[in-house]
Design a protein around this nucleic acid. Structure first.
Lengths: 115, 115
DNA sequence: CTTTTATATAAGTAATCATTTATATAAATG
DNA sequence: CATTTATATAAATGATTACTTATATAAAAG
């Protein structure tokens, strides 16, 4: 696997708001599933689903304690890296709220000139 | 939009190997579409597709020069951030090549004990 | 104006993936 | 053993999206 695919894999893992919420809540601590469910207001199966992905992808690791399973970050450097990207993500100039994705009705540019 | 969604948006944009290849090839330079097509071995419509997304999402900006359209990074800090992430992405410990995603045949654990 | 080169856009398709609903497992407790 | 609590898994579904093929636009050249 080359660099691009390694990065793709990591970015796809982190490119999900609920997973990011979970990571942020866990921070540098250990958190049980029920704590995460409560903090994120997500359903328990959904939290488990995301936790499984984050663990499979080496973002999180687990420790069992009785009936509880505690998740924590495998590498807390991730938190710093997220902060760095958040700086980049914070729409510095163009101040567009979000991608247009449909900037124009379908009939727009029928007969217009410039591309 | 909160932090998690801002990051999701950025990470989804970057979570695509071909887009990463394009970004890497552009680097801190200006590159025309045809240069990118040649360097990446992707079809021209596919390159245009990814370039449009990268421009809409404020990763790239464009400049026309005759029939050529040149793309460049809007913020070259992104290159450093990618380098940092590549360090995190480079499977340090678990040495699993890729996600199992199907670690077991469907009949596995029929009658087994431990979860 | 016609052709050629450079780039963008559109429609269609297939695959991926987040989410929900329902169920299974595991540990603890009665 | 039966019940409860904590967590995981499975199946089904809907939405998103990368990619291909085909076509449109724009600038330059003949």
């Amino acid at each position: 696997m080359d660099d691009a695919h390694r990065l793709q894999y990591l970015f796809q893992t982190l490119g999900e708001a609920n997973r990011l919420k979970i990571i942020k809540f866990i921070g540098d601590k250990e958190r049980s599933v029920s704590e995460i469910v409560e903090a994120t207001h997500l359903s328990q199966p959904l939290v488990s689903h995301h936790l499984r992905i984050l663990r499979q992808r080496d973002i999180l690791e687990t420790k069992r304690n009785g009936p509880f399973i505690y998740y924590k970050l495998k590498d807390t450097k991730l938190l710093d890296a997220l902060g760095l990207f958040l700086g980049i993500a914070s729409t510095p100039k163009g101040k567009r709220t979000m991608e247009p994705m449909f900037c124009c009705p379908p009939w727009w540019r029928k007969g217009k000139k410039k591309l």
